[in-house]
């Protein structure tokens, strides 16, 4: 788990599906295996975005609650 976070994106207040779209665009700028941190709201965002990311072949490395938001670390898939 010694990998650095390449990019960080605050999506607090960004609704579905735009939060996923922005996460996806940010991941496109990374190489596979690199990490992205996204801040997502609890509720719909947390229900949908990590699931969609997994469906696209990315890996959720770590989820940390931060009050009403969550920090989600995603590893870009192949």
């Amino acid at each position: 788990m010694g990998q650095e976070i390449k990019k960080s994106l605050d999506l607090h207040g960004v609704v579905c599906p735009l939060n996923f779209v922005k996460t996806k665009l940010a991941l496109e700028t990374l190489n596979s295996g690199e990490w992205l941190e996204v801040i997502l709201d609890e509720g719909d965002a947390m229900l949908n975005v990590p699931r969609s990311l997994k469906e696209e072949g990315h890996r959720i490395v770590k989820v940390t609650p931060l009050g009403q938001t969550y920090s989600v670390i995603v590893e870009k898939g192949a």
Binding site: P17, L18, F20, V21, K22, K24, L25, E28, S52, E55, E56
Partner: peptide, 23 residues
């Protein structure tokens, strides 16, 4: 680079695995 407006306009395309921002 896609503008904010383009990201929103084309969001239903970008969501598609076979399109994405690059597509």
């Amino acid at each position: 680079n896609l503008t904010e407006e383009q990201i929103e306009r084309y969001s239903r395309h970008i969501i598609l695995k076979d399109v994405g921002g690059a597509g």
